[in-house]
């Protein structure tokens, strides 16, 4: 049985695509056959983050419209085994994703032996975002420690609980909070909402805390998901989140400001520096 995971947020620019790429890659690294599907029709970006933009020939909408087979449109990742990417279309027709079409493609992926299908949702609560979450078994709510992001996450949680297929059938969708762009130093100075604050407001189990990190920009520059950079704080935080998604217990890291020792203070800490 394939597990369909939507990565969603309501608010734009909080790190959905970064997280979809990292978590999808992480699941594949752990040996699970995984497909990452870009639902952001008209504003495709997953291909750039995964570094496969030059290999896009067919896309999700082509498969829905039966202009290409799923096999033709799926891009096999060149770095990570078990990993495939289904790019979004650049069409301006935002209703191009029909519910029936999306369902057919997801079923075909499941029948093809994919264990995880990670759906990278567009921002907002319009058609594209609804299609991305409708078939989900689990939802990763990407949230920044910032008021509008937290409010929008709550809004999207409400939609998951009322408008998803599982909700319509009276079943529940597994919900996970992924707090990204977290800056422990600012939290301890009282300038930023802390993990506990956000957890308390949203009341959703915490999948992970991804620190604000320079490694994310670097990874997107070269088109390699940040989880492939095991030295980086963000990369290891995503790796931990993947372990938790797979049911393992992992203590949360990168939540507290790293106290720099004297030597580090002089020579500069390198690994876990935050922006």
């Amino acid at each position: 049985m394939a597990k369909i995971i939507v990565v969603t947020s309501g608010k734009g620019g909080v790190g959905k695509t970064t997280s979809s790429a990292a978590i999808g890659t992480g699941l594949a690294l752990r040996g699970h056959r995984t497909a990452i599907v870009d639902f952001d029709v008209g504003l495709r970006n997953l291909d750039l983050i995964m570094g496969c933009e030059r290999r896009v020939v067919y896309d999700f909408v082509n498969v829905i419209n039966e202009e290409a087979s799923l096999k033709q449109a799926l891009i096999r990742d060149k770095r990570t085994e078990n990993l495939y990417i289904l790019p979004a279309s650049q069409t301006r027709d935002k209703d191009a994703l029909s519910k029936e079409g999306v369902e057919r493609v997801l079923n075909e992926l499941a029948n093809d032996g994919f264990e995880y299908i990670v759906c990278d949702s567009p921002a907002g609560i319009e058609h594209g975002a609804l299609m991305a979450l409708y078939f989900a078994d689990a939802a990763i709510i990407v949230t920044n420690p910032e008021v509008s992001s937290v409010r929008d996450s709550d809004r999207i949680l409400g939609i998951l609980q009322s408008k998803s297929r599982r909700a319509e059938k009276g079943e529940h969708v597994d919900e996970y909070l992924l707090l990204t762009r977290y800056n422990p130093a600012r939290v301890s100075r009282g300038e930023m909402l802390g993990v506990e604050d956000v957890k308390e407001i949203l009341a959703v189990p915490l999948l992970g805390v991804i620190p604000e990190s320079q490694s994310v920009l670097k990874a997107s520059n070269v088109g390699a998901p940040v989880i492939l950079d095991p030295e980086s704080d963000a990369g290891s935080a995503y790796m931990d989140a993947v372990s938790r998604l797979l049911g393992e217990e992992k203590a949360h890291r990168f939540i507290n400001e790293e106290k720099k020792g004297l030597l580090k203070r002089i020579f500069g800490g390198k690994k876990h520096e935050t922006v």
């Binding site: 770095r79 070269v222 492939l228 095991p230």
Partner: peptide, 17 residues
């Protein structure tokens, strides 16, 4: 592989971008 990707032009990932 990642080391390779990143170190090839470690100083300048921006130019790759």
């Amino acid at each position: 592989l990642f080391d390779y990707i990143f170190n090839r032009q470690e100083k300048n990932t921006a130019s790759q971008a």
